[in-house]
Amino acid sequence: MMRLPSFRYRAPRTVREAAEMLADTSADTMLVAGGTDLLPNMKRRQQVPATLIGLRNVAELRGISNGEGLTVGAAVTLAALLRNTDVRAGYTALWQAAAQVATPPLRNMGTIGGNLCLDTRCNYYDQNYEWRKAIDFCMKKDGAICWVAPSSSRCLAVSSADTVPALLALGATITLTSADGIRQIPVASLYRNDGIDYLTRAPEEIVTAVHLPRLDGWRSAYWKLRRRGAFDFPVLGVAAAARLTADGLVESARIVLGAIASSPLDAQSAAGGLVGQRLTDDVIARAADDAAQPARPMDNTDFTLHWRKRVIRDFVNYALREIRGDDMRDVRRRVARQMLM
């Protein structure tokens, strides 16, 4: 059986207490909420924190509140998020993304904050200690080289969180709390295109909440590419959101791609091209081509990279057609193995 390494465990009851603990302790301290990302990494010795600060007793992180939009505590589980009727009704892309994360029991455990901070993934990195030793490790942990692209000076591990492209497309912001205070930033600002240093969060900061703006008149969708109907991380995620006028003109739009770089990729020019247009087949096809163009997937996930690159436009197409109002249930059933409606 795979065993966790030894660690010291601390269980604060409030955010303030957690922030103070974090400020106090050394660099090899990590926060743990659902544990579904960190604990496998610890068992594989990819992450070996000396101290864990467990957030499960921090009640204030588990609320969902209405206001100007929706505020979701970082320790709200994905399952709880899915049960929330406001999320389901008003933030379709987020709901569809959360519904496709991992598996039902893992969604009962994993939290929205954990998904936001999900470690970047790579087939050369997400392996047991023994396997990584056999390739002499990689620069993300214990080694010097990136085996995906040996000439690369940076790590190319992949941003693989389903909810992140959805939150970006929905214009969400997050709250970061430390012993020194709090700050609120757009979700996009949390990420950096670097497989190792993929979060801009300071070591003493805790992601404490996610805020979704009011989105009157917006429609959104999330399409995920993976081999199976469950378990698998995305090897491509497409989130799209658009506000349409009553007569079907696009007033505003966002298209965000996940799982093709170390950070989510905001396809601004593709989305910008939709503004002022109707979502005709041609307009959608052009936007899909534009969105796919800058993507440079690497050979470190499931499926061949050429094929992943090639189908980006199809998945953008699916998302935009769903926003247009097409009945995509059959395609959903074949691609996602679920209806997600």
Partner: peptide
């Protein structure tokens, strides 16, 4: 009341 994976739940929790 929630099904979870016991392999990823810390005993101390």
């Amino acid at each position: 009341d929630q099904p979870v994976l016991s392999c990823l739940v810390l005993g101390v929790e």
